[in-house]
């Protein structure tokens, strides 16, 4: 059995140090601009912080992965290639890319730089993953959160590329990289602008009908007194379909695959990714601690692995909507 790497989010230098201190094998981060899919104000790293973060992680034998996983356009292409040049210069352990053009650039100009295929690349089959391997030499692919366990196993059986899957955190119900819902509502998308349902388009309005959340004027949800009003991520609002009002696409919930760890290990997953660069260092600490403990337990005694109630309780505290799902791993979810 391969040792599974724990890949944790770092939206800031304190979060990075927290992740490392609590047992992350790798941390992933992004620059302070639209080159990554968590382009939120107050988040991410300037050059000095990247250097300090890398030094901190490397001094402790951990890796730093840099997400450059949005799609550059003709006009802003040089910003993305400059970001790759900087990543190579700073000595990150890998860059996480989605755009084939950027992969070609990286492979040509920085052949020693390790390439990971981002979840935003939307590669859901081994044929797609092998395309990126043959063309650009990617060494790892992060799978979109759409496949069943059997389908993930089939992918792993048919590619030499290491496979990383999401283990915990905010859940995209749509195939990552193939979702233009935010672009449709706001003009800004994860693909091109690095943000879904961006904050500058969000309005919270206390009305006689309840607290209303809007995205670019579009009503995403309305909350009764005593209901916890969540952020208006547009696929997680309540809408009317044939006169029925419900979470038509997805509830506000988090993915949590802790109980699937032995199965994920058996089929040969190489890394588990924790979502949440937009979350606080406290979140990073809590989630990293639990997953570190679980992975260590699994490594020590794979056949005796059991999820403890304490782990689940800790994770539920930081879950979106205080609830969790196995997502596409659980057939009825579909």
């Amino acid at each position: 059995m391969h040792r599974i790497e724990l890949v944790c989010p770092a939206g800031s230098l304190p979060a990075l140090k927290t992740a490392v201190d609590h047992g992350a094998d790798c941390v992933y981060l992004g620059f302070k601009d639209a080159t990554n899919a968590r382009n939120f104000s107050g988040l991410n790293f300037d050059p000095a912080q990247v250097r300090e973060g890398i030094a901190y992680a490397h001094a402790r034998g951990r890796k730093v992965l840099l997400a450059l996983n949005t799609y550059p356009q003709a006009a802003n292409w040089p910003s993305w290639t400059a970001a790759i040049d900087r990543a190579a210069e700073y000595g990150v352990d890998a860059v996480i890319l989605a755009d084939p053009g950027l992969m070609a650039y990286a492979a040509k100009n920085h052949p020693q730089l390790r390439l990971h295929l981002s979840v935003q690349g939307s590669a859901t089959s081994y044929e797609a993953i092998n395309f990126y391997r043959e063309r650009f030499g990617i060494q790892r692919a992060v799978l979109p959160r759409v496949l069943s366990m059997a389908q993930v196993e089939q992918v792993i059986a048919n590619t030499p590329v290491e496979i990383e899957v999401f283990g915990f955190g905010g859940l995209c119900v749509m195939v990552e990289g193939r979702c233009a819902l935010s672009a449709y509502a706001t003009g800004e998308s994860p693909n091109c602008n690095g943000a879904c349902s961006p904050g500058k388009h969000v309005r919270w309005e206390d009305t006689p009908r309840g607290m209303e959340t809007r995205l670019n004027g579009i009503l995403i949800d309305r909350f009764a007194d005593g209901e916890r009003a969540g952020y208006p991520t547009l696929c997680k609002g309540r809408f009317e379909v044939n006169d029925e009002t419900y979470y038509a696409l997805e509830e506000p919930t988090s993915l949590n695959t802790l109980e699937l760890l032995p199965e994920l290990a058996r089929i040969g997953i190489r890394a588990i990714k924790i979502e949440g660069r937009q979350r606080s260092p406290a979140y990073v600490a809590q989630v990293t601690r639990v997953w570190r403990a679980a992975l260590d337990r699994l490594q020590a005694a794979p056949d005796a692995f059991q999820v403890t109630p304490g782990w689940m309780a800790e994770l539920n505290k930081v879950s979106e909507g205080q609830s969790h799902t196995l997502g596409a791993y659980y057939r009825p979810w579909k």
Binding site: Y71, G121, A128, F131
Partner: peptide, 27 residues
């Protein structure tokens, strides 16, 4: 991209790059 790979493997040229391939730049 799986389709792109299989088309290449079969030596097919003259195909259409579809709208879900995420082609955003000239490279």
């Amino acid at each position: 991209m799986g389709a792109v790979r299989l088309l290449g493997e079969a030596g097919v040229r003259g195909w259409v790059a579809g709208p879900t391939l995420n082609i955003f730049n000239p490279t």
